[in-house]
């Protein structure tokens, strides 16, 4: 149990994918203007991260390694993720239209989200067990959601301020992100 908690908290806070590994920056900066879209995107990422770990981990250990093709993991993983995202979208549409309405628009975005591929590769690279891989994926997704939600609050505040002309838009967003990341640095060394 303590080990599981350590893996979860490490992935979520100290090694947060967005603020310390710089993965998934595009949605972090792009889909964080409003709280509800930040939550929708975060939920979709958690969902896809866990599902693609469920798919890529067995694929690597039971298909690629026995065949001696483990160096092809990059191609295999990205294909699985691309297929999987499509599949999830189709299934969600049939089974739960309300959930599809909530997450649907964000799903295609996730195919090219480096955080999803990143979590699958890091799980295999670091030699985590299947259970720990899943916990790691959950933690990474929760950390992503947390960063997005916190940042959407920050952006709401800076929107109405008097910012120098050259810094309006993306530059001020990036500087605000820098200060948020500074805050997250305080967590390092916690675990």
């Amino acid at each position: 149990m303590p080990a599981i908690l350590a893996v979860l908290l490490t992935a979520m806070i100290t090694d947060n994918f967005v603020v310390s590994k710089f993965m998934g920056i595009c949605p972090f900066l792009g889909v964080s203007k409003k709280l509800d879209s930040a939550v929708g995107m975060g939920a979709a990422v958690i969902f896809v991260m866990i599902c693609s770990t469920l798919a890529t981990y067995p694929f690597y250990h039971f298909v690629l390694v026995p065949l001696g093709l483990d160096y092809l993991y990059n191609i295999g993983f990205i294909l699985i993720i691309a297929i999987f995202v499509q599949l999830v979208e189709i299934i969600l549409k049939k089974i739960s239209p309300s959930l599809h309405k909530l997450l649907g628009v964000y799903l295609p975005l996730i195919t090219t989200n480096c955080a999803v591929l990143g979590v699958c590769i890091l799980n295999v690279d670091n030699g985590l067990s299947f259970g720990h891989s899943l916990i790691n994926a959950l933690g990474a997704g929760l950390g992503f959601l947390m960063a997005l939600v916190v940042f959407s609050g920050v952006r709401g505040r800076i929107e109405n301020n008097d910012i120098p002309e050259a810094f309006k838009g993306v530059p001020s967003t990036l500087v605000a992100a820098a200060i948020l990341v500074l805050g997250f640095m305080g967590f390092s060394g916690m675990i």
Partner: peptide, 12 residues
């Protein structure tokens, strides 16, 4: 990491 965001904002 924080400096990366800051620097990129300044450069843009």
């Amino acid at each position: 990491p924080a400096g990366g965001f800051f620097m990129l904002g300044i450069i843009i």
